[in-house]
Design a protein around this nucleic acid. Sequence first.
RNA 1: GUCCCCAUCGUCUAGCCAGGUUCAGGACAUCGGCCUUUCACGCCGACAACACCGGUUCGAAUCCGGUUGGGGACGCCA
Length: 491
Amino acid sequence: MSETRLRFPPSPTGYLHIGGARTALYNWLYAKQTGGKLILRIEDTDTDRSTAESIDGIVEGLQWLGIDFDEGPYFQTAFAADHVAAADRLVASGHAYKCFCSKEELESKREAALAAKKPLGYDRSCRNLSASEVAAREAAGLPSVVRFKVPDRPGSLGYDDKILGRIEAAYAEIDDFVIVRSNGLPLYLLCNVVDDIRDRITHIIRGQDHMTNTLKQVLLYEALGAPLPVFAHMPLTLDTKKAKISKRSHGEIVAVQFYRDNGFLPWALNNYLALLGWSAGNDREFYDREELIREFSLERINKSSAIFNYRKDDPKFITDPKILFFNEHYLRTMPVEELAPLVAGELQAAGLWDEAYDGARRQWYLDTLALIRDRFHTLKDFTSLGRAYFADDFAVDSKPLEKNVLKFPDLVTWLPMLADRYEKLAEFTLESTEQVARELAAELAVKPGVLINAMRTLTTGQLAGPSMFDIVVTLGRDKVVARLRDVAKFF
RNA sequence: GUCCCCAUCGUCUAGCCAGGUUCAGGACAUCGGCCUUUCACGCCGACAACACCGGUUCGAAUCCGGUUGGGGACGCCA
């Protein structure tokens, strides 16, 4: 069997959204699984809406997700000659014809049909124009488009969809669709097929919104004498109100870039996307790259559409809770060596990076990440909630300050006492620091928790965090002593 | 309006093709509990669904038909 060739053909009219990313991911998975190739083709024939910015955004988004392509990006406009040649060939072979109906005429007919609740299709009035009639209209300078002549046969045509099964429609139901604009530029339906034939695409995995287009494209393949690729129409991604997701109505939350900019791990998003509409038939939910490539299958993609369950009304969830769940899972289970460079990027951006973290303090850096990552949701938390581990200018939250410090005014003398003892400690370890703190609490006749919670507040600025003495040892004697002695400034 | 597709907990889904082992399993979210000097993790538990109506059958979430609901397409957009 020859190699499988797949493509991801975005139109550069916006950013890469999660629905598009999912389509790209499924194509990528299938290409990888079958040892085939993935081609990126930018479908920029809509020159009015295509932007260079959008192209960059799409390429960057795919790159961030780790969805690499083997060929491209190709640009559809670069193959305009192919498209025109194919259209000419279809007209010459009698598979297509010129139509002189004006936009206005068609529009009024469509409105009339809508009002009369009749089918909206083209009435084929130019379909049987004689050669002389065509010549006369051309001589009169009438603009024309090219329409595909849907075979006038009984019965139906169809194709076998890998996901949906057999899809059929009666020939009579299919409109004589336009393949070339009046300005001579071929349209998507044709360009797409011509490009897929030229690129030797064997499998087309795309959204179900293309289902009816596919029938027309099957006709095009047939007329162009090319073999049909395998089609697989995947379910759409809708919002909680079952409407298509779009930037206009949902904002940046549906853009892949949003996840990159908000400290998400690319694989967490991939894992989420893979399971949005596909499952291996078991309860498995975590996959690494190789496992997903191996287990993925077209046949097990769901038929029904999936809902992107974001809730903009709940500040706790900046996106679909399940994306957060996957992100948190990978954040605390991935090898800390892999996490290290990602956090490094955040620290650098925040001006908290120290070259020593890659050198002499490498081990400290890794240990610290391992210690603090359990409570974090995204990469962003390392520089916000975790700032005290990398800098001295961290903020102390008012809530823990109130609850753990100000409530016990005596701490203003107790904490410096503890600092003194820590300073004199021969060995600054987990055991010794805990022992000293507990001894002091006993001497002062207070519960150890009073001292411990105050310590956490002063050393990290946070209400919650790792076990106190892990923090103490991680921060080191100097910082702990200094921060404890600083207690007075809060009173 | 016409044509096409779809239909299991709030959400993602398993089970359906090869009907009984399912008064439907898992995950997220939610709510309780345990653990913890904190918070989280973890663990335990609770809540929660086969859209409806008929048919076939000894037996239907599973097969068939219809209804309803949802989505898509119907563009000189892609």
